[in-house]
Design a protein around this nucleic acid. Structure first.
Lengths: 157, 157
DNA sequence: ATGTCTGCAAAGCTTTTGCACTGAT
DNA sequence: ATCAGTGCAAAAGCTTTGCAGACAT
């Protein structure tokens, strides 16, 4: 994540808190910084550990509270996968297309401009659309390699 | 769900169990029948209640066991939404595009052939694709109507 | 001074697990 | 007769909640 984004999202948060007469607590900004220091997705547990290491301990209640706020502000996206809930920074990301490895759980953003256009072209019945998420499930190259290695081992046996 | 599908999926399940030397238990078929008697999505709780009413009580452990089997066989899809996990029958459904109401949680299948074509046309990097799910989030017409009514009430006040 | 936010601990859910028993083959 | 499958109850996670105290405004 680019360093410049960190400043930008801090300003978005500050503005929102100001406008809604909410408090600018150190916790909220620490969580936001930590979120934007990840490359890709992370679990609550990973976030908690990172914050404890780089900033100061923050309780689960506060973490969930902050993350929910950020999700509403569209600064963070939340993936509910079979391996558990994962969060991810999403500033200035027009893309909401992800490839998800069903073996290791890795979530990677992908570019799918054709899909986005096609979706915009699609009429929805009785529905006021807001946002969307596309998940392509499969196996990432790392896990494909692992599987291949295991197969070869069996052959040798 | 069409009655004819019930017979078809029963046969798919029976064949799979045969071929893999697994047991054809009454529970598995009761769960499958119940799943296919729903119109649209349902929670574990709703499934459990329906089975208790129409068939015989089946424990949670067995329900989860059966559902996981069906998901692997592609007879059922599983939506992990913020409102909870929902399941849905999916026989002969090539569509994996859903519109999800973020207010009432309703999940409706939608047709998006353009999106499917566009996705097929999209190259994935370092990834062996398997399946996909597209979720369009928004507000369904019922909830739009409710929101409008509430707004009007406020005005009257 | 005010009222929001946080931390803690408990509660609430959902899902999984271990084990003894049951029943499909 | 086997041993996979089931039910039960406990355990394990994850997320939310209630409340008292802290602190940004």
């Amino acid at each position: 994540m680019k360093e410049s984004n960190k400043t930008a999202v801090r300003q978005i948060l500050a503005k929102y808190l100001d406008e809604n007469k909410l408090r600018k607590t150190p916790e909220r900004f620490a969580v936001l910084d930590a979120v934007y220091s990840f490359n890709g997705h992370f679990s609550i547990q990973e976030l908690s550990e990172k914050i404890e290491k780089d900033y100061f301990p923050i309780s689960r209640a506060t973490l969930y509270n902050a993350l929910n706020l950020f999700v509403n502000l569209r600064l963070v996206v939340c993936h509910r996968l079979s391996l558990g809930t994962m969060y991810q920074a999403s500033y200035a990301s027009t893309s909401h297309c992800y490839q998800v490895c069903t073996i290791c759980g890795k979530v990677a953003e992908m570019k799918a401009p054709k899909v986005e256009l096609a979706l915009r072209d699609t009429r929805l019945k009785r529905f006021r659309r807001d946002s969307y998420s596309l998940y392509v499930y499969g196996v990432c190259s790392t896990c494909v390699a692992k599987l291949t290695r295991e197969k070869n081992k069996k052959k040798i046996k």
